[in-house]
Design a binder for these strands. Structure first.
Lengths: 234, 234
DNA sequence: CGAACCATTGACCATGATCAATGATTGTGG
DNA sequence: CCACAATCATTGATCATGGTCAATGGTTCG
């Protein structure tokens, strides 16, 4: 999921532990994934649904995927956004725990779990790496638990922007391929609250909105303070 | 973590996927854990802290453990409560992601990760089981993400009580070994809100409080409805 | 160009946090 | 064993945050 370069002990949307793999781990996975078929997804197309029995493991080559669950009242909780290099679906035991849907056009490498477990026999070094991968996802999920609770809308949003910023290589312009609804469903807010707080950041010259889906950070220190819950009584 | 028997699609505190292991999985783990040393913890004693480098894996024999993280403002987010049979700490990669502390007196079996990975060589069937175990924790964490967000205090509390009830074998009396602060830190509420909503449940004859740490469910249907967000405008 | 969708803004309201006081329970030392 | 302190829980009053409803403005696509 998204990584964030943040001070230690400061709860961020996700502390700096990306789900992706280190270089030598990548090599092993490359070897396994390389001979596998790929799959292309159009925006809004589903990869799998909550409850599905399929157990394919995917690695994102390009594009962006959202994982989500539907709540009883029809609301959608986005669990995580996943990017190129991330691995999806190792966690499926008998059924999918959540749905996966393309945000942007995406290309994925597919690996059925039988092949994966066969590979485990030839390649025992793979097991600890699977554990590592899952551990990072778990860490990630737990970070979000710590974040979603009892943090104000502005804190969540500031942290989210910083996260995207870090994830996109700290470049000046930040691409929001996401709709306001996506952001809201991820942060556990309404679109109105997201919109209002973006405006607040804008009018206080912390960010600048170039278009609806593109923004620049003007005052990253301020943004960091906000994400950390430092009080600013504007 | 806690398991909850709830209708499908109805978000519960945790859908019915307990972290514990199935019988034949237990046998394998028994074999590995059996020759290992144990450790006893007094209430409020820590097993490990966030950031620690130790990578021991534990299985709870008796007692109750809470996993938590500290937020920058000093607040504590309880990630999960763990009971007898649950396994802790497989997810540690280089450092602990969260702290573990005994709620009640607890006895744990310890397994250092070197032994675990050595066992993996002799026992290749173990790897998928480790994955399963972690997957369940991940599922669990994600369930809590879906739950903590945008659910009212009464929904959270009702679901929590049902969870404890299921976890304690659906017996009449429910033991709350936890303080109000524990509950609040788990559900992302304040102790005042927890207290007020317990009172609300009490005055509407949904539960009865025997002592501060013991309660009976009087109207489980009502409680279920509340947990599911069915509107009751008392 | 118009329709459909998405985002913004405003007014109002409900929920739960905060501050504060009182009651209950637990633990400790005389 | 009681008395006192300390901790924990309950209850009340007030307030702020963010949700809801509603209207308007922008963007995109056929």
């Amino acid at each position: 999921m998204l990584a964030l370069t943040a001070k230690l002990q400061r709860p961020s949307l996700h502390p700096a532990r990306p789900v992706g793999l280190s270089d030598n781990q990548l090599k092993l996975f490359d070897k396994i994934f390389s001979s596998q078929p790929t799959r292309n997804l159009e925006p809004q197309q589903h990869l799998f649904h909550e409850g599905d029995e399929d157990r394919t493991i995917y690695r994102i080559e390009t594009g962006m995927i959202r994982l989500y669950r539907l709540l009883s009242d029809g609301r959608r909780q986005i669990i995580s956004f996943r990017f190129a290099g991330d691995v999806l679906g190792i966690e499926a035991t008998s059924r999918r725990h959540c749905s996966a849907e393309a945000v942007s056009q995406a290309k994925l490498q597919c690996l059925d779990s039988f092949s994966a477990y066969r590979s485990l026999k030839d390649e025992p070094a793979l097991a600890p790496q699977l554990v590592t991968l899952l551990s990072k996802e778990l860490d990630n999920a737990r970070s979000q638990i710590a974040v979603l609770n009892r943090r104000s809308a502005i804190e969540k949003l500031a942290a989210f922007i910083l996260e995207l910023h870090a994830r996109q290589g700290n470049r000046g312009e930040i691409e929001l391929q996401l709709s306001r609804t996506d952001i809201a469903d991820f942060l556990g807010l309404t679109i109105e609250t997201v919109s209002r707080n973006l405006t607040k950041l804008r009018t206080h010259h912390v960010i600048q909105l170039l278009t609806i889906h593109k923004l620049i950070i003007l005052d990253i220190g301020r943004l960091q303070d906000l994400a950390d819950g430092e009080r600013d009584d504007w």
